[in-house]
Write a protein that binds this DNA or RNA. Structure first.
Lengths: 159, 159
DNA sequence: GCACCTGGGTTGCGCTTGCCAACCCAGGGC
DNA sequence: GCCCTGGGTTGGCAAGCGCAACCCAGGTGC
């Protein structure tokens, strides 16, 4: 489950992928963002096998992306539903970045997929790098660096 | 390889995950962002099995995230290297979003992982939703919607 | 009271993927 | 001729995934 063997969990990207990187996981989160909460809703929307879905939901609950809670419809029996936690809400940004990338680099004839809009206005939103002072930055203006181990020099590691 | 059976490729999130969602794939891209280009660099940095690495590199080349090209060191033989294409560069935003999420929601005692900085200044950058007019938005101000099939009403689909 | 339905799963079993170790092979150096 | 090094391929085994079948608790109909 979350007992990965790719041990470089010193990297937060790897730690994110450790819990989100299995097949279906982010698609379950996507459906949760659309407001789906129930086992059968996820199963029917995604066509995922019920055992796999069961496993993914359990993992997402375990790591705090979803919260499992009982509910009861009027006159119905007690059932379980899965709702996003604040940590799950924050995954919207990851999903939106993936959506933007797929839109641009893996176009399809017809796309009925997700869109992200500003709640207040309904206008579509984008994702972007933002500098410390608030300026938007293009991906080309951003550099990936690894932290230096013991500061041998104060300059940024060039690679 | 890229012959997935999760057929709802009408969604660009699913299409992105179709090519990026296998184990190791995004970590290979992460290493490529750090400037690694060679098979053995990826293998040594990640500890990934060579057959899996070979498969992931081939897929990434096939979908246009990496470009494979021969090079020759002085007095050496011809070898292959893998460099990010512009489509690969755009994945920095996805990696940064994952990094930010992991940083916040999966903290580790020690994190020597990736950091993203502004190339011009070396200052760290963040990722964010941005409205059409350029305002930054919190994740809570953003709504995930599915496009309506035939506009039955002009309002935004609430769920 | 009993059969039935429905939501929310679990179980068994085969297929596919991933992992590890071992091997390969081309070219250059010695 | 032999070894070394980079860039892989091959084989065997374990884990993950998918399908179909089954389960079970509680509410409804009769």
């Amino acid at each position: 489950m979350v007992v990965s063997a790719w041990k470089d969990l010193n990297c937060s990207i790897a730690r994110s992928l450790d819990v989100l990187g299995e097949r279906w996981t982010l698609l379950v989160v996507r459906e949760a963002c659309f407001g789906r909460t129930r086992f059968s809703e996820f199963r029917d929307a995604l066509g995922v096998a019920p055992d796999v879905l069961s496993d993914r939901l359990a993992t997402l609950v375990e790591v705090g992306v979803l919260e499992r809670r009982p509910y009861r419809e009027d006159g119905g029996r007690r059932r379980e539903e899965y709702v996003l936690t604040p940590a799950g809400d924050d995954l919207r940004l990851v999903l939106a970045a993936l959506q933007a990338w797929g839109d641009q680099h893996r176009p399809a004839r017809e796309d009925r997929g997700a869109r992200f809009v500003e709640a207040a206005t309904g206008e579509p939103v984008t994702t972007s790098f933002v500098a410390a002072d608030g300026r938007r930055l293009e991906p080309g203006e951003v550099l990936a660096v690894r932290p230096v181990r013991r500061p041998p020099s104060p300059v940024v590691a060039p690679v």
